[in-house]
Design a binder for these strands. Structure first.
Lengths: 253, 253
DNA sequence: CCGGCGGGTTGATCCGGATCAAGGCGGGCG
DNA sequence: CGCCCGCCTTGATCCGGATCAACCCGCCGG
């Protein structure tokens, strides 16, 4: 299940995606890019970066990257695929905390408790960069740019957590959700108007605190209003401006 | 309004609380305690700590500690009093993001955007320790314990932000809110069963995504069930176990 | 002294979205 | 092939909490 992986990056064992020739482009769009560049690309600290980062994967849909209660040792940057984080209370009810796209980082909320407070589950076949946190901290102490980068990552996640605060209508929440995804895809160099929803309607509903039926209805209504085109999980935003307008109370700025 | 304050701490100008003889006890319970201790109490880096931290206040109820859009230069630890943070959207609707008690830290969500993304408003007469963030970062680079402490603070706040995610009944949310406050007061050395609610019913309602009337009704019901005693804003928890039970779906563990 | 006002409580009514129910579609497997 | 199962959609009904409304209380200013 949790596939172990040789640490070095030189031979790069059977790994169809992590190695598909777009390495530099990926690193250029990853949330860690400036940290990696500061740490490794110029100076001869490259060697340390290599023992710091480890490529792991693949994880297939439904597999856990980490589980609630696992001891915290590393954070993960998504290289490809999609992840949901979720908490499960003792009655077995699930609460989806967030979705993470390529270039984004999971595990930051485990620093304080020193154990992961939630599960991370792959929604797609996914690959990751695994950053040993002790090594990362040590590096941050010596390279201010890395430290600054970590602070910013943490702070950024704080900001997005307060996005879904507030009581808003189902339409507002759905519109904001779609525009948020669009913005995040755009930030990583993907299309902002056509993308695949890796998560089920049920996951979206849970994340937005709605019923799955409501998600379905709202999407149908958006379609009938020509705001979107949607077939299964393939989505096209036909009127991003109108959607942004709808979700403005939830969106940054 | 935003009272300027001489930076040194030697003469300590008219400032009835920051200087009331309980300095060491306060610092012992503050969220920064280990950072301050690591930074200053042993080594002769005390001098740097002094230029790092500045006592500010008083702010009276309704005054702003910072405002949305202010450039980010410092974070603040509450010395005494209570603060709410809130966002106001362009239609003028307020969203309360959190309440901060003595010993807790505000402003962390401003690191990434480099401008405060929300207002901080005093609910009581309040005093603060103001920590220059550039100085703090520099110190963190040299003292790993300080860096670790900052990472933990950020990560902790991430965890509490996901507390109010999830859709739960008004009763669950209110019970969890009261037990959360109780736990935080206890962590700072105050009574966990009797305390003052510095915020209005409207602020509580807004924070919990309820109507003020609902908050009032739920509190009345809790009183009639002998879960609490409440007169105005003075609160006593008569049956903390039952309240914890009620709010368990929202509470850590 | 009075009047206004913000905050709090309580009752009556309404509505958005949850829940219940039924059926469609597609993919994996015996 | 045919069945089952997970996911999705759509319709009907129900309910928790929002909203509207009335009133109380304490405080402040004139």
């Amino acid at each position: 299940m949790d596939s172990k992986h040789p640490a070095g990056r030189l031979p790069e064992p059977p790994n169809p995606i992590a190695d598909d020739g777009d390495e530099t482009h990926f690193c250029g769009t990853c949330a860690f890019s400036s940290a990696c560049i500061a740490a490794g690309y110029n100076k001869p600290e490259l060697a340390q970066l290599q023992c710091l980062v480890e490529h792991v994967g693949p994880f297939r849909a439904g597999e856990h990257i980490f589980r609630t209660g696992d001891p915290f040792r590393a954070i993960f940057a998504v290289r490809s695929g999609t992840v949901k984080t979720r908490m499960v209370d003792k009655e077995g009810r699930e609460q989806v905390l967030g979705f993470y796209l390529p270039g984004e980082v999971i595990g930051l909320n485990a620093i304080y408790p020193e154990h992961f407070p939630c599960d991370a589950v792959a929604l797609d076949t996914s690959f990751f960069c695994r950053f040993s946190f002790p090594a990362m901290s040590a590096l941050a102490s010596r390279i201010p740019a890395v430290q600054k980068h970590l602070f910013r990552l943490l702070s950024k996640e704080l900001g997005s957590a307060s996005l879904l605060a507030g009581d808003h209508s189902a339409d507002e929440r759905m519109a904001a959700f779609l525009m948020d995804l669009a913005g995040r895809y755009a930030a990583r160099g993907f299309s902002a108007t056509r993308f695949h929803l890796s998560m089920s309607r049920g996951d979206i509903a849970n994340y937005l605190r709605l019923a799955a039926e409501t998600v379905s209805r709202v999407l149908s209504r958006f379609r009938s209003q020509n705001l979107i085109r949607i077939e299964g999980r393939e989505l096209e935003l036909l009127n991003p401006d109108a959607l942004r307008q709808l979700g403005q109370a939830l969106l940054p700025d």
